[in-house]
Design a protein around this nucleic acid. Structure first.
Lengths: 120, 120
DNA sequence: TTGTGGTTTCAAAGAGGTTTGAAATAGGTT
DNA sequence: AACCTATTTCAAACCTCTTTGAAACCACAA
């Protein structure tokens, strides 16, 4: 089987190091599979908005109903609801019903992530 | 000073717990400041694309010139260049010049992140 | 200096995420 | 049932990110 490496020109320093690792095929074989990549992308996208980050951090300190989050941030219900759904779909938060209220709180993944981010 | 909490209706369970934490103001005071939030958002956005994630993981295994990344992925130069610039601006990768080549490699932050992601 | 190969930049088109306000849903009360 | 309140859903407008191909840039060699 012909490696692409044999056909393209790259600096010697890199060619040597790369060959020791099995070439392009060797590196490619060590990369996360598509499923894992998509899972990471989903979490990263959920974190890539200032408002969602604040909500996630707030929820990690205290479970809250939507009206409380709305009061805290000044955002519209529909907006908050949209962002909560993104956080929920990525597995960072979940919710339980209490009477007329929906109480959102962080999942274990959400907690772990917040803790890790705080170590920076 | 009047707390918003006194004016809105929320479940008692949450009101009690929240009051013990200083109310909305107490929680808000514990949230990361805008600068930190923006830094996290920048990193999260960089990670929120499958191609960039693969490139970041590949670079964590082996420094590579752009032509090698192009050969490995089959993407166009301009596309790769764009994604590398996003990774670079978020501080996950950096580059050094070697003759005619630009060698990209992961920063300490990039390495730490890859390692942490791999623990999942 | 002219040429060549690696890489970036640019503008326009395309795709995808976010905001908005109005309408719908759903639990609880009267 | 009718009603209120908390929350979600929807579609359209809006905005940001990504892709594309052509042109520009830069280091090196002849």
């Amino acid at each position: 089987m012909l490696e692409i490496m044999d056909e393209i020109v790259i600096p010697d320093s890199i060619r040597c190091e790369l060959e020791g690792k099995g070439g392009i095929a060797g590196i490619s074989g060590l990369l996360p599979d598509d499923l894992k990549i998509e899972a990471i992308v989903s979490v990263a996208r959920a974190l890539s908005d200032p408002m969602r980050l604040r909500v996630l951090f707030a929820l990690s300190l205290q479970p809250m109903c939507v009206c409380l989050l709305v009061a805290m941030t000044g955002y519209a219900y529909s907006k908050m609801s949209y962002h909560l759904s993104v956080l929920k779909e990525s597995g960072l938060v979940c919710s339980r019903q209490e009477g007329n209220y929906l109480i959102y709180y962080t999942t274990d993944l959400g907690k772990k992530l917040v803790e890790w981010i705080e170590t920076f």
